[in-house]
């Protein structure tokens, strides 16, 4: 477990938004588990990174929250993607793809001589 990396601050917001888009309204625990699973357990999400990030997204109006009941009858706060969040997700995803593409070109072996 110790070797699992913490999530980078900047990318966590994107992952949260994507998760909410894929799964619909979800509580904090669910979001954390989903991110960990999707990453193939390469990432670890703890309270300290998750909750301030959720609050920030809510303050910015990308997501909203509401108390609800979980599958096993536990009171939990559910987060829902808002329209602004959907747009932001598209925008950030595009930017992210672009960044990774550029980086990939730089890092690809031997290409620069061609």
């Amino acid at each position: 477990m110790g070797e699992r990396a913490d999530v980078w601050q900047g990318t966590l917001a994107l992952m949260v938004l994507k998760t909410l888009q894929a799964l619909g309204p979800l509580h904090g625990y669910g979001i954390a588990r989903r991110i960990e699973q999707t990453s193939g357990d390469l990432l670890a999400v703890n309270y300290g990174t998750l909750y301030p990030a959720l609050l920030k997204l809510e303050q910015e109006g990308y997501i909203s929250s509401e108390w609800g009941t979980s599958d096993n009858n536990r009171k939990a706060k559910y987060y829902k993607l808002m329209r602004a969040g959907r747009k932001q997700l598209e925008k950030e995803a595009r930017e992210w793809e672009q960044t990774t593409e550029i980086l990939a070109r730089f890092l690809a072996p031997g290409k620069e001589s061609a």
Binding site: H27, Y29, Y47, Y51, R74, K77
Partner: peptide, 17 residues
């Protein structure tokens, strides 16, 4: 109080899993 409740819930779900 809300934050405490939310985190408590998170912990409980984790423990159950």
């Amino acid at each position: 109080r809300e934050l405490s409740a939310e985190m408590e819930g998170h912990l409980q779900m984790h423990v159950e899993d």
